[in-house]
Amino acid sequence: MSGLSDEARRLIEEGLRDAPVLDAPRKAAIRAATLRAVALRSAIAAILAGLLLALGAVGLGTYASSTPAEPSPGKAAAVLAAGVPPIEAPLAPAPPSPIDRPEIDRPEIDRPEIDRPEIDPAEVGLTPRATTVEPARRPRRRPVAAPEATPAPPPPPAVEAAPEPAEPSPGPASTLLEEARLLQRAQRAIADERLTAARALLAEHRRRFPEGALATERDAAALVVDCRLAPSPATTRRAQAFLAAHPSSPMSRRIRETCLR
């Protein structure tokens, strides 16, 4: 305050009183540009997340670690841990089998092959799958014991590799994937104006994943559905509460438009 001459102080005060304000069009333009920049950022983030999701469970792991309400590092680690084996599982039994087959299976398998050469095409096809599916899944838990302990049903690697990668593993990764899929179905239902169906799907989501990684998104979607189906002071209050709790959620704008008009 002190240390300035009267003239300096007068010029400052006049300058402060005379401060410019943004006129309406300019303000609107800046606001629009800001929201565009924000939308662009979240779109880029969403695309990156989608790419990671497409690559596998790792994507969901990072998403889970970015949602604050989660015990994230543990979950992400669990997802990573569960995400790796399905890739390795079909590969693990493959290398030993060419070696194992001549050693272990020769007395039982090779001879029938020589006796009846028409088995070979059948083997590559569907027949042995019933016997090979089980040992193919097991190596995940005891990868070393499997080829040695079960010499009788020899897994031909070509047949085994085909059905395995499609099998979802029942770990946290698949839980997250399921959660995301369920939410996606609900969002599609909202987009198609099937609001009652969307509400049922979201209720199912809440029942199955009450504390899921996508709980916030689920709650936002449920709020939008409720506001559309039965707007009331209660939904307005819920919308205000949601906006206060998640001001920068990508859903905020939609909630505001739907619930607080």
Binding site: L11, I12, E14, G15, D18, A19, P20, L22, D23, R26
Partner: peptide, 15 residues
């Protein structure tokens, strides 16, 4: 056209 010029404010900025 965008924003009217403010004399006292401009003086302050020039200082």
């Amino acid at each position: 056209a965008h924003t009217e010029r403010r004399e006292a404010f401009d003086v302050l900025l020039s200082l």
